[in-house]
Design a protein around this nucleic acid. Structure first.
Lengths: 289, 289
DNA sequence: CGAGATCCATAACCACAGCGTATAGATCGC
DNA sequence: GCGATCTATACGCTGTGGTTATGGATCTCG
């Protein structure tokens, strides 16, 4: 037997109303139907979801878990229906860290002007595909070098890499830094966004490496004076902290900034967004260089 | 007729395989069943989802939209089943902006030590309830003063407000600033996070107000020298930019930091998380004050 | 303490939703 | 224009999910 929405609807109705009987009324079916649907659901999942006492029904630990997801799913289904029936559309753009840099505001302005009927949702993600693989967005702006065969893509910019140093580090007195000067330091890498940073050095001449789980930790590690970091230029204006300074890495290759989207059945507005974003990046590179 | 997962499964199978016939094989039903399920779905939504030519099937504009959501939903259902059958659990904590401040890392460490069986997901959100009302998380850390009757809550900290000034502003030379000194400036408010900022001034003596959609714009507006901003203390270490400096607002009341969660059927680990977080905030206020 | 009320599970039955088979209709390749 | 290939429709039939009825368990209260 396959899991169906019916089962989830029963579950939330029962928990919301507090009894099988009332849930049945709300769902406009008989109490017996509710009972069997829940037994079926519990059987399918292999877990008891509800404590039944003869006076009231409360979810078990597992029930609470399932309940949260079930509510979410039913909500998404409602949204799906609403969106399809009203013809409303939206474009979700995932941007990793600060890959969109300064263009965010201008992009939103122009998009609103050119495509007022399509709602724009900007989603900040830190996964390697900017949420595209997970279906969280229709178009993503990323830096990490992902498998470009999986997605359609456009390379819109190149960014210089910067070195993040403790303010009192001797290297901070220089205007620029080289890879070799970092060789004997401890390099801190943010696991989610810096996965390829280590490859800047040949395998036999790498700094010692530490990992952090998010940007806050990453900054803290550097501010403490213990580590140095490497990051694309655009992030340097956004993630700042006392005790951390940024210097250009003179001899590191630049990072590509890519737009990626689904090769098959792309969101209809994707091409328009790609064009607009490419244009913005284009303008800025030609003017600032 | 109610929408069921069966319909969505048919849709994605058809688009993935490219034909009704192959989709039917994949789903282990007859081709006719697939055909009718899709007609039913289209009927329910009132939109044509697929272009049928006798050679291939491609989704319409509306189809692509629905498809993305359908994939998401089916994925969520799979996760629900997997989670329930394996007994795996997770706790999702939504934190608005930087309301968790410096505690993030330490909290993760301690949680992993004390509850290794419960996966922690930290979700950055900017909605007024930190994603709690939308079902995106089980527990949220927020500053905005929401309707506390809707949720269970605990107040864990109070934060001083700071004023964000252009670096070359005359007020930037002072150590602290007062509300009255900002009265004739332009105050920029981030629409999602600063909804109550304006209330600091009596209605008749308010600065002129401008709104921005996100933090980047907010910082830009101040860096340009055009505006000033007001923000809780914790954000000042995380959102920095050249040309923006922060000064304590001497006479503004502090902001409360709340934990909020669902009053009924809370996630089983919620109480443990509340206790741990409260403890962390407690320690820091007693040590830094 | 026992009668009644209340609630979930089970049983027995039944209708129709949804499936399968067969086929018509449409479109493409050759 | 014929065959191949695809979707839609027609038409029974089966089984799923519904109904009503009832049993068993628990709580309420006289």
């Amino acid at each position: 037997m396959d899991l169906e929405l019916r089962h989830l609807r029963c579950l939330v109705a029962v928990v919301d109303t507090g009894t099988f009987t009332d849930a049945a009324i709300e769902l406009r079916v008989s109490q017996a139907a509710v009972s069997r649907n829940l037994l079926a659901l519990e059987g399918r999942l292999g877990v008891r979801l509800l404590h039944r006492t003869s006076r009231s029904v409360t979810p078990t630990t597992a029930g609470v878990q399932v309940l949260a997801r079930a509510r979410q799913i039913l909500n998404d289904v409602d949204e799906l229906v609403a969106e399809a029936t009203t013809g409303h559309t939206r474009l979700r753009i995932g941007h990793a860290w600060s890959a969109m840099g300064r263009h965010t505001a201008e992009f939103q302005r122009r998009w609103a002007a050119e495509h007022p009927e399509i709602e724009l949702q900007l989603i900040r993600t830190n996964t390697s595909t900017g949420g595209l693989a997970e279906g969280l967005c229709d178009l993503a702006v990323v830096r990490t070098h992902i498998d470009l065969r999986r997605f359609a893509h456009a390379t819109v910019a190149q960014e210089r890499r910067y070195c993040a140093l403790p303010a009192d580090d001797p290297l901070a007195r220089k205007r620029t830094v080289t890879l070799d000067q970092l060789r004997d330091r401890v390099l801190v890498i943010d696991r989610r966004t810096g996965s390829t940073t280590a490859d800047l050095w040949p395998e036999e001449a790498r700094p010692r490496i530490e990992y952090t789980q998010d940007v806050d930790d990453w900054l803290s590690a550097i501010a403490s004076g213990r580590c140095v970091g490497v990051t694309p230029q655009a992030t340097t204006t956004q993630y700042r902290r006392d005790g951390v300074v940024y210097r250009p890495l003179r001899d590191a290759p630049p990072v590509d900034v890519h737009l990626i989207w689904h090769r098959q059945d792309p969101h209809p507005a994707t091409q328009a967004a790609v064009d607009l974003l490419s244009g913005l990046y284009q303008e800025s590179t030609s003017s600032t260089n």
